[in-house]
Each structure stands twice: as structure tokens, then as C-alpha cells.
Design a protein around this nucleic acid. Structure first.
Lengths: 249, 249
DNA sequence: CGTACGATTGAGAGACTTCAACAAACGTGG
DNA sequence: CCACGTTTGTTGAAGTCTCTCAATCGTACG
């Protein structure tokens, strides 16, 4: 079922047939969460991972004063709580943006699979790093770019990520978020997001209606966001074990 | 030599004697980098990890227009480029803030060690997650907090992290950064950092002279930064392999 | 058809920035 | 050990990006 997960894990080099089988067989069950529903709550702990197989979600943190910072947008193939595998407690919550299909993978089952298939373990570790790389870009975005650039950069990122799981078209993609969501992701106010969006539209860079983003001018959008997709294109290092199953040298 | 690394890895539960021996024996050689020197350059790839054994450093990214975003402060026991282990190319640079002692650990040697000592591999994977958790706090900080709170939060974080590697005293700690560094870390201008710092001083929360931060009022500082150290205190999940060497429940 | 949520607009306020200058601290060479 | 140049810290003032408040509009939905 989690075809998008395999697609994602394979972006760095193909998995073996056996590994794919294992990955596809990991989920214990599937659950459905309506738009706006909670997928993971903050502070909790669990003994299973949640993997998005369909739909959009966001990881976020609520502050004392009620403000919210969205930390990541999650698309099919993304784990909601990979960190809970080794850190016993979630430090953020996850909510569905659209209707979501969530596959549940027991930690234990994953540990067992990783023991047999080293490369699977490495692929998941790499996912952790990949997630961190995206988070790092967000920090740069919020820390040092104008509202205009932030929005442009974010939309580029989402398109690229959807692309790798075959959920994006050349010139448009689904992105079921409200302007409030965008504001909380970019560290801006709703009002300002609204105006910045208008600015982008007026400049003929894109269209954003009914949860669909249509990119009208890729080159200029990428330039506006100073977007360099290098961080989303990870090639594998040459050193790590590359044989199937038990590995070494 | 990398005693601080062992201290850090053990914050989640003790390593075995054998594991400690391995960890301590990993570095191939030590190198020295003067303050302001480059430790890792952006975009490069390497076949060895750099571990800080002494001194302070920062990971940062330069933007097209010359602006800089500091992504993390690195203290003894921190890896500069753990991500390079699985992602073949660095997506940020690392520079020394003070004179640094850097231990070099060949990727290959680490892979070999992890194969024998599963728990070491997990400890390192956990480091990746830990790093991401800190980065996440920075995003919240920059995205949703005032300059005053950002500074307070950052200083709390640094103290806590220094504490776990026994490099902090109760009421003060070394922090060899310029106000420009702080500005680039917090997404602010130098001028504003200067004024915010004065504000913190005037409020009697701290002192910051000659690269030494002295905290005068912990409760108020923590409150000002809405600082909750939970994310820096990782307990181990109960499921993962806990025996030495070959593992399982 | 009313309610509710999201998008949009206007206007005033504020946090933070930029520019520019000066003072203090620091390191270095003579 | 002092002189000098460079870096870092500090201050003032003007500007602007972004925010908050508040009202209006549109649209989906029961």
C-alpha cells in the first residue's frame, strides 16, 4: 500500500525486491482521519509509526500564548513521527490538512525488519536526515527571507516533494491549505500572506484557487524564492553497505 | 579523547564498556582550527566525520545576497557533519567560533563499528534526531517569538547543552560569539540584537561580557524565552534493542 | 436562508531594519 | 609597551516591512 514510501526511499537508489516486499508489508493497519483531525498529539508517546499514504498533513507546535508554528507539511510517503522511534516522546503534534489515509507500522515490526535488512535501516535513517534538511531550509526561509521569497520558496519545495511521489503535475498541484496555515508555516500574519499571495499573482508567477496551485512562470518563481532543489536530491554516499541483507566490507 | 561525545551519547542510557572503548577509539586524527576558520565548507563531500572535541562552532548557510543564517551552534561532543554520512553532499558550512579541536572519524570506520555494535548505530541515529529537534526549536523561535524571547530561549538552550557535556557552570558559561553571530542565528539585525541584549541586561536577567554569559535570574530568563527543556532531555524508548551487540528483546 | 469559515481590504501601529557615525576593545607590529 | 588598524559594540534617526484590529465579502453547507 505505501507505494509512495517506496518511491521516496528509492530516490537514492533502488531497493532490492525483498526489501520492497518488506517495506510494503510493514503496515499493520490503515486508519482514516478527516480534514482538520488530529493524527498525532503533542507530548504523547506511541509504539507505532504513522505513515501518510494519502492526503496532506502538517506537523506543528502550539505556543503558550496560543500561536502556532507549522514545522513541516507532510505528503504521501512521509512519516508523521519518525522521531518517536528513538525519542520516546513527541515534541510536536500532527494534524490532517485534507482527508488522510494513515498506515500504522509498529516500532517492533520495524526494528525486526531493519535487523534483517540493513539497507532499510539506512534508508530510514536517511529519511531522518532528509527531514532535517528540509527543516533547515525552513529556518533559512523564515530567518532571512522576505515574505514574498518565503512563499515562493515554500511552494517550490512542495511541488518538488510531490513530484518525487508522483503527486504533482508539470504546472500545477494540489495544496489544501488555508492562508492561515501558510501564515503559521512562514512565520507571518494571515493578512500579510494574503497580500503577498496577491503580489505573486499580480506578478504572473502563479495562481492559487480552490486548493490548487498553478505555476505560471517557473523560472521566475524559483528565482523569487532563491530556490535551489539540491537539498531535495540526495544521492547515496559510495561507502555504505550496498549488498542485500547482511552487509559489509 | 572525545569524552564529551560519550557523555552526550550516554545521556539516554549508559553504553557498555566495549561500546565506550569503540567510541573513544574512533577518531583517526585530531586537527586544530583557529577561531573564524572553516571547518567544513558548503557543498563539499567527504569520507570522514568531524567531531568537535574542544571549542565552539556554528553551522551556517550563505544566501545569494550575502546574508547569512546560522543554523546551529556546535559545542564539544557535537558532530559537524553527521548528515554527510548518508547524504553525499553538505548543504551547509561549518565555521569555528573559537579555537577548535576537531576529531576526524572516517565514515568507513564508523560503519564497521556500527555493524558490530547495534546500539552505537542507534545512538548516532538518535543524535540525528536530537539535532533535528533543536533545529525545530529554532524554527519556532524565529518564526513566532519576539527578539527578546528568541535571545532568552537561545541562551537557555546553549546553557543546557553545555551542561550535558560538563562545560557550563551553574550561573555562567562561555559563549564566544559576536552580536553579529547572534543576529544571524536569530534572524535579526545586529543593531536590534544589541538593543535587545541591553534590554535583557536592564531587566536584570543576565550579563554578557567578554564572551561569558552570566545568568542573574534563571526563572525569569526561562520564562522570557518560554523555554521548556523537555526537548533536550531524551529518554530512550523501551522497545529498541537493549542488549549489547546482537539485539532483540 | 442563515451560519461559519476563509479570503480580502483599509488604516493605524509597532517591531525591526538600514544607514551612518562613533566609541571601545583587541591584536599586531614596530 | 605604545601606536595603529581592525573588529566589535553602541547610539541616533529615519524608514519599511509586517502586524493588529476591525470590517466586509464570498462561498460552502446544513
Amino acid at each position: 500500500m505505501p507505494r509512495s514510501l517506496v518511491l521516496k526511499l528509492e530516490r537514492d537508489g533502488p531497493l532490492s525486491f525483498a526489501e520492497k516486499e518488506v517495506a510494503l508489508g510493514l503496515p499493520e493497519h490503515i486508519r482514516h482521519v478527516p480534514a482538520r483531525g488530529d493524527i498525532i498529539s503533542d507530548g504523547g508517546s506511541s509504539d507505532a509509526l504513522s505513515l501518510i499514504t494519502e492526503g496532506f498533513a502538517c506537523r506543528y507546535k502550539l505556543l503558550d500564548d496560543g500561536r502556532r508554528q507549522i514545522l513541516a507539511f507532510l505528503v504521501p510517503g512521509d512519516f508523521c513521527d519518525l522521531r518517536s522511534l528513538l525519542l520516546h516522546q513527541m515534541d510536536a503534534a500532527v494534524a490532517a490538512l485534507s482527508h488522510c489515509q494513515i498506515a500504522s507500522i509498529p516500532h517492533q515490526r520495524l526494528f525486526d525488519a531493519m535487523e534483517k535488512h540493513t539497507r532499510l535501516a539506512l534508508a530510514l535513517w536517511r529519511e531522518t536526515m532528509f527531514d532535517a534538511a528540509i527543516s533547515q531550509q525552513w529556518l533559512i526561509n523564515v530567518g532571512r527571507r522576505s515574505a514574498y521569497a518565503r512563499l515562493a520558496h515554500l511552494l517550490c519545495e512542495v511541488w518538488f516533494r510531490l513530484q518525487t511521489v508522483q503527486h504533482a503535475h508539470d504546472r500545477f498541484f494540489d495544496f489544501p491549505v488555508t492562508q492561515t496555515d501558510l501564515a503559521d508555516a512562514l512565520g507571518l500574519s494571515v493578512v500579510h500572506v494574503n497580500r503577498t499571495l496577491q503580489h505573486l499573482r499580480a506578478d504572473g508567477l502563479l495562481t492559487f484557487r480552490a486548493s490548487v496551485v498553478t505555476v505560471l512562470d517557473w523560472p521566475r518563481l524559483r528565482e523569487a524564492g532563491q530556490f535551489d532543489p539540491a537539498y531535495l536530491r540526495h544521492r547515496v554516499s559510495t561507502l555504505e553497505p550496498s549488498q542485500d541483507g547482511k552487509s559489509h566490507r
